[in-house]
Simulated scan of single mutants.
Amino acid sequence: MRAFWYPFTHAAAKEIRLIDAPLEDVLSSRAFQPVRRRAVERVRGALHGEIPDADASDGVKQNVELLSYPLARLIVSCIDDDYLLRRYVLAEAKLAHRRLRSSDTEEVLEIARDLGMSPIYEGDNFRIHFTDFVISAARFRSQKWKLINRTIDHGYLKVTREELLRLMQERIRDRIQEGLPLDAGSICEGLSDHLRSIRDELASSKRSSMVDLGEFSRDALPPCMRSLLEQLAAGRNLAHTARFALTSFLLNINLGVEDIIGIFNNTPDFDEEMTRYQIEHIAGSTGTRYTPPSCSTMLTYGNCPGGDELCRRIKHPISYYRRRLRESRS
């Protein structure tokens, strides 16, 4: 296994322990400047949606890749921002997924085992135990990831190579998430210069991730819809009922299909074809245009984060929006 490509593995942790790299030197020594640079690059890449790959053509560069991972985790922990943490974890998992796609089958199986999975290679496909499938696919909303839509034989089901890699990405995401944020304590002082610049980029990223509603007013959004948009911006998957509520709401305040697809493209299980189909269906492609659920329904399905004073006087998110819009224009 190329441990430097997969620094979240147990094999990589062993290699990191073998490197003569006292933390004080990593934080301040000129010799470890490439490690600090790459760690910052990992965090900044996460803010912009993708961690760039790195040249690891020799042992020194491989050590940089190995050591930059725990240092990046320390940086994220020092900043201790939920938005950054979620984007970082997702970006590291996506980087690993890109690398897995170019790995041979033996390496894929070795990493899967490191993650606690036990896939069996069969020709062009794999067999995995249904428990591995259920655990890894828990966040997915597409019907193809529902166990009921799979054929199980003696506890195992078939998956393609790409499906296995996608399932592994979720396990990697959980592995990276473990322990974050770390208790960095005084270590943060040694990273203060880097933290300052990343905090500035973080603030900018948060502003740019806010959904552009064109002529519509964000201030007029009801708390429930504002909360769902914030969850999407943070890279979270929404439950089916929440996706329906948000999509139908946005369509009913005249956002277009393409705009709404763009809003959902930050979710971990984003599938443009499926997302387009669902949005067009809600928009009325089959003859029925759907309206958003009422406030009571939002509450029933756990999609109401708690209302404000106006919520107590209205019964529907659209009514809330229109009332706030009128008030802002008066």
Rank of each mutant, 00 (worst) to 15 (best):
residue 4 F to I: 07
residue 9 T to G: 03
residue 14 K to I: 13
residue 16 I to K: 00
residue 18 L to F: 14
residue 22 P to M: 00
residue 22 P to R: 07
residue 23 L to K: 10
residue 24 E to L: 10
residue 30 R to A: 10
residue 40 V to M: 13
residue 40 V to Y: 07
residue 44 R to N: 15
residue 45 G to R: 12
residue 51 I to H: 05
residue 54 A to F: 05
residue 54 A to R: 10
residue 55 D to F: 07
residue 56 A to I: 15
residue 56 A to K: 06
residue 61 K to Y: 01
residue 70 P to W: 08
residue 70 P to L: 10
residue 75 I to Y: 09
residue 77 S to V: 04
residue 77 S to G: 10
residue 84 L to N: 13
residue 84 L to C: 02
residue 90 L to Y: 10
residue 94 K to Q: 11
residue 98 R to E: 06
residue 98 R to K: 09
residue 103 S to P: 07
residue 105 T to R: 14
residue 107 E to Y: 13
residue 114 D to P: 08
residue 119 P to Y: 09
residue 120 I to R: 00
residue 123 G to F: 06
residue 126 F to G: 01
residue 128 I to R: 01
residue 128 I to F: 08
residue 129 H to L: 03
residue 136 S to E: 04
residue 143 Q to T: 15
residue 146 K to R: 06
residue 148 I to G: 09
residue 149 N to E: 02
residue 151 T to S: 06
residue 151 T to Y: 06
residue 153 D to V: 14
residue 155 G to A: 05
residue 160 T to Q: 13
residue 166 R to D: 11
residue 167 L to M: 00
residue 171 R to S: 00
residue 173 R to T: 01
residue 173 R to H: 03
residue 174 D to K: 01
residue 176 I to Q: 01
residue 176 I to Y: 03
residue 179 G to E: 02
residue 186 S to V: 11
residue 194 H to M: 04
residue 195 L to Q: 02
residue 200 D to M: 03
residue 200 D to L: 04
residue 203 A to Q: 15
residue 206 K to M: 03
residue 213 L to N: 13
residue 219 D to G: 08
residue 224 C to V: 04
residue 229 L to D: 11
residue 232 L to P: 13
residue 236 R to P: 01
residue 237 N to R: 12
residue 237 N to H: 11
residue 239 A to K: 15
residue 241 T to I: 11
residue 241 T to K: 11
residue 243 R to K: 05
residue 244 F to Y: 14
residue 246 L to V: 11
residue 250 L to T: 03
residue 251 L to E: 01
residue 261 I to M: 01
residue 265 N to D: 11
residue 270 F to Q: 04
residue 270 F to N: 02
residue 273 E to W: 11
residue 283 A to C: 09
residue 294 S to I: 13
residue 294 S to F: 11
residue 300 T to K: 12
residue 306 G to C: 00
residue 309 E to Q: 04
residue 311 C to P: 03
residue 312 R to P: 08
residue 323 R to L: 02
residue 328 S to N: 02
